[in-house]
Nucleic acid binder design. Sequence first.
DNA 1: CGCATCTTTGGCAGTCACTGTCAGCTGTGA
DNA 2: TCACAGCTGACAGTGACTGCCAAAGATGCG
Lengths: 180, 180
Amino acid sequence: MAECLFREQGYDATTVDHIAERAGISQRTFFRYAGTKEDLVLSDFERQGERMVDVLRSRPATENPWTSLRHAFEVVVASRGEQSDRDRAKLMYSIIESSPALRAAYLDRMDLIQRGLVDVLLDRPTGTDNRVVTRALVGAAFAALNAVIETCDPDSNGPDTFAADLDHVLAQLEPTSTRI
Amino acid sequence: MAECLFREQGYDATTVDHIAERAGISQRTFFRYAGTKEDLVLSDFERQGERMVDVLRSRPATENPWTSLRHAFEVVVASRGEQSDRDRAKLMYSIIESSPALRAAYLDRMDLIQRGLVDVLLDRPTGTDNRVVTRALVGAAFAALNAVIETCDPDSNGPDTFAADLDHVLAQLEPTSTRI
DNA sequence: CGCATCTTTGGCAGTCACTGTCAGCTGTGA
DNA sequence: TCACAGCTGACAGTGACTGCCAAAGATGCG
């Protein structure tokens, strides 16, 4: 819906009034449902984040955290299965990148997701209760994920290059002391 | 100046009009100089980022990137030398944490700094020109830095616990293939 | 069906950050 | 003293967002 407008005239140039009019509702109703103009773009990521937390919680507590995080990232990999999904993701990221405020909000959501994952890892009976290192570990894994998302060649992308790239970068980045 | 107001009544509750009035200038002049309300808080970090890029560029191109980044982070360590510096940093981070929008903007600046560091590393004649992995590496190092900043016990902080903590987390997080 | 009640919706006014424009003031050099 | 450049402030406007209230619609019950 609104994505079409964003794609056509850009995120910043599209006013909420315009979106509401196109949707056939009042501006007031728009804000009641969407919460925020940013949420139109970012709510998808938020939902992905929640699923990542769920997946992480479902992993065995004795599993290597790095491996568990890789499984959580499967949520993102899965969201890029079809070509149409990949096109949509590409569009979303180009919209996000087009507006500084939106990109900032996106990074904030990512940060919140990371905090959620950290809490899950700290809840494990095994493993350290070292918040700092766990926070850093999750941040590092996300750095790998975001690097792949960000730098992933947009076009001519084979079906599952994404998963392979992610695995490659995660392997390169795996901490020396993988068992923290 | 404005920090006092932020400390006293909170960031969001302090309007630009209020700040301008306290500074004895018009709102228009405020915006001409400060650019943005957020910049009042974040310009310090921006300057730190530039210095980090300078430091990284001054390191030998053959140096292990992880080590080079640690040297760049010395900028942050140095900015916490005195107790008064640490108090100020604590205040700044509490202000940032108090406003979602401000935290988002902070994360955005951090991201921009990382991109700057990535470009420096990619300019090195030695080393790979693998953007994805380099991006992830810098992100991982920043994850360590931010984890320490974020989780650093605010009070009863010995003089240079910060540097020690940072070294510890960076060591734990150092990628398996430290030489990428 | 009629009525009461709850929810949904829209309009209105207001706040706050931010911008463009323009007119007035200030300082500087000729 | 005059001309010109730069700084400053007032003003009006935009765009996201909120609180408030009244109208409209849906729902339940006798």
